[in-house]
Design a protein around this nucleic acid. Structure first.
Lengths: 210, 210, 210, 210
DNA sequence: CATGAATGAGTCTTCATTCAT
DNA sequence: GATGAATGAAGACTCATTCAT
């Protein structure tokens, strides 16, 4: 991916997140990427393909990160998944908001690509929860429901977290991990190691120092 | 509000929820409301004012409902707020999705109208949580953070709940109330009365039999 | 069909004939029809549908006219068909040129509509020729080939005939009828009555005094 | 003319014939010629100049061929011209269709270049017809009209002849020669020698074995 | 009360062409 | 000799909105 391509994508992510896909004009996008609207089309297919690319890449990274969570105690594993998800949403609010808000725009074919990734990702959460229940460390009568609640709770982070606020990434992730364990009726651990590991994974996957 | 006005608003709610504000055309809207696009303008101001009206009304109803939650034990009160919120999102997914997703479209003035209502609504949650902590029935070190997590978790319901699924409204509300109490480190009660009350309030406010 | 619709269609016919379908811009068309390019879309579907409409209507008229040629002596009948075709191409060169030149533009579905009409029309010619041969008044070893030659020869009229030139419509039609009979090895008649009839049919079908 | 130039020209001929000049994009052309659209401009001037080149070359060849028709009996000479024209249109339908259909695209200057050649070519036909009438072997009261009819009839071949059909080039040319003579009220000859000669001329001029 | 007609500004996308590398 | 990058202008078409009837 060339530098210009990256600039285009970055501009698109920001605009799509702020004003929505349909609320973002191609000229606006071109201006933000500092090229002409005609040149835009050297670096992308259609506007929709650009969106699809953004969403898939983001989900692929999220998935790649989630796969690096060690398969240890279900509590630690869930804490790891939560920390990772929350950290990602905190440091990449634009990308994650696009993933969460603009699925309805996609054509059926593109949508299925995105949904497939999302499902695969959620399966990791489901498995962890099930394991925890089977192992007796989680106590919950409606694990599916709880999983949905959990995910939405974590997605929300990209809508309100600000790096300029008083809350550090560490604190954020730790608290959400704690909340998740509580929701599943598990005993609270010390998650500092888990959160630390999640932090380094996220840092690697997104090539950013946290 | 005339019958036609209601038809317009209902059509707008459905379309805005499904395709987004910018993804919905005025002609499409007219067609769904079964009038001509010119006639539309007898029943609304601009497209944006229509959106503002939808959002404000929805928030007003939510607020009106929340104010009917009795100021009893903080646990019951929180359970009531959660049940109410979740039930509303379950039976009115279109309206609530519009409220949650289309704020960025509004002009600053219109947005402040919406935000004001939202803030007022959230204050009720914040107060309840604080009371619970003060009373020692909740145990949480970051109540603000938890409140945000809680709200996002509940908002999510409108994105995935289906009345055709196996989950009844009662079960949904009860489980979410339980999750909320867990998140705040409170002891689980029997929330059936609280949920029942919430149900009747929602039923009244939205004039629908549940 | 409203007056404006007619103006649009007339402008389109002229422009498509002069500059080709792809050579004619929508703004150019709007200007020629004296409305804005946006208003254009109140009176037409897509540009292609406009073209299809023009072609089908023209062919329908040609067909309607051809069906009024009396089924008398094959020589007279052929002379009638030729006169009619030639007169039409002489007085409506724009429409007929569009029909003859822009078929390749159409989508398969639209094309089949046009081709169906064209085929039906040519069948009338084919039948007449066959009858003439069967009756022994025409002598030709390759009637299909001759029919194609005949049609192309007559189509050509719209490319060069000028009403301002020295040649009257009567003379034009009479000579072409004579040429056609010669091509089929038939004996030359006096075609004045036949041509006169064709003239009045064309006049009626196109609502123009010749 | 380099090999690449030939490839470009061949691609252009095919595309212009199939989709029209304005219906053919420069990128499409480049792709068909298997070079980049930028490289295209090493082998051509503007798109219009490319068209002009194609048309002029085609007409030049037609003219060169026509000049090789021996000045014998006017009937044989006309038969020769017709055979040549028809054969050319049969074996080079793309080129001849471009010549016949895309004149309107050209700028006045370019157009005059084309028209000059066309006129010169048609003069050969006119002379032949006049000679025949003067010599008493043709009997026609409107030679100009007949010439136009003749030419259009022959041009038409490129629109419908298929080498995969049952009709051989020989049969095609022979029948058209016969038709032409009939149209001019001449006596039918045996044109096999004339057609044979036309065939070899066309074969030479276009460097193709027929 | 209702709507067909109208439009300027906008939509996304492609156009033919140039030029630095 | 070849081409990726670049673009102003234009392509067809839709937008939200107004207004006379």
């Amino acid at each position: 991916m060339t530098l210009t391509e990256q600039r285009v994508r970055a501009a698109a992510v920001k605009l799509f997140a702020d004003k929505g896909f349909h609320g973002t004009g191609i000229r606006e996008l071109a201006q933000a990427a500092k090229i002409s609207s005609a040149s835009l089309y050297h670096y992308m297919g259609t506007k929709e393909e650009l969106l699809e690319g953004i969403m898939c890449e983001c989900l692929d990274r999220l998935l790649a990160a989630a796969r690096q969570v060690p398969a240890s105690d279900p509590r630690d594993r869930l804490a790891g998944l939560v920390a990772l998800h929350v950290l990602t949403h905190a440091i990449e609010p634009a990308q994650t908001r696009v993933v969460d808000h603009e699925v309805h725009v996609l054509s059926p074919e593109a949508r299925s690509e995105v949904v497939r990734r999302r499902d695969e990702y959620e399966r990791l959460w489901a498995e962890t929860i099930e394991e925890g229940i089977a192992a007796g460390v989680f106590h919950d009568t409606r694990p599916t429901l709880t999983r949905l609640a959990l995910l939405e709770m974590c997605n929300g982070v990209s809508r309100w977290y600000s790096p300029h606020g008083p809350l550090s990434l560490e604190e954020l992730a730790t608290h959400f991990a704690r909340l998740a364990i509580r929701m599943l009726g598990g005993e609270e651990n010390d998650f500092s190691a888990t959160v630390g590991h999640a932090r380094s994974v996220v840092s690697t996957v997104w090539k950013r120092t946290l």
